[in-house]
């Protein structure tokens, strides 16, 4: 049985509209951002705790620490993969994500440094503070780049709107 009007345009099917809405969802993108930041920061804080232990830990405890760090880093890697391949951030999402990253990395850096100061040596404190500062600076750079990209697109949008009026 042949179908009528095979070559006719059909408009956009509702199913496609739903699929597209799910594909561009802001919530799913921010979920990946949050998961990645939580995984990376948790791994960092556990590493600080491990490094500032006053005595050598039993092998089993060391294995648990290593396992937790690996799980945290794995979540961060999954989030990074998803955000580059499956759910890329659009310009406004990048600004939101970078702001979140800036706040979370600064808080993690401060908490890690306080932990190192309470439990470890001066070297551990300086190392943790340096790593925290570098990560916060990277987040700051990402935020500046995201804002610049958004400004550029907003300008282009206004030009195109003006040109079409």
């Amino acid at each position: 049985m042949s179908e009528p009007d095979h070559g006719a345009p059909r408009g956009m099917p509702a199913e496609l509209e739903r699929a597209l809405a799910a594909e561009v969802s802001l919530r799913s993108r921010m979920r990946y951002v949050a998961v990645g930041l939580a995984g990376g920061c948790a791994a960092g804080l556990i590493a600080v705790l491990w490094a500032t232990e006053p005595r050598a830990l039993p092998v089993r405890t060391q294995a648990v620490f290593a396992g937790l760090i690996a799980v945290g880093l794995a979540w961060a890697a999954v989030a990074a993969w998803a955000l580059t391949r499956r759910r890329p951030l659009y310009a406004q999402d990048q600004v939101v994500g970078a702001r979140l990253a800036l706040v979370v990395s600064a808080v993690t850096g401060i908490v890690g440094t306080v932990l190192a100061a309470a439990r470890g040596t001066t070297t551990a404190v300086l190392t943790t503070a340096a790593v925290g500062t570098v990560l916060t600076a990277i987040a700051g750079l990402l935020l500046a780049r995201a804002r610049s990209r958004r400004r550029e697109l907003l300008r282009l949008r206004d030009v195109l709107r003006g040109g079409g009026a």
Binding site: M12, L20, V24, L26, Y90, D93, L153, R157, G164
Partner: peptide
């Protein structure tokens, strides 16, 4: 214009572009 709005992250523009 719709492409730029999509790149900005204006969700409703995706439906318009597809339409």
């Amino acid at each position: 214009l719709l492409v730029v709005r999509c790149q900005l992250g204006e969700r409703e523009a995706f439906g318009e572009l597809a339409g």
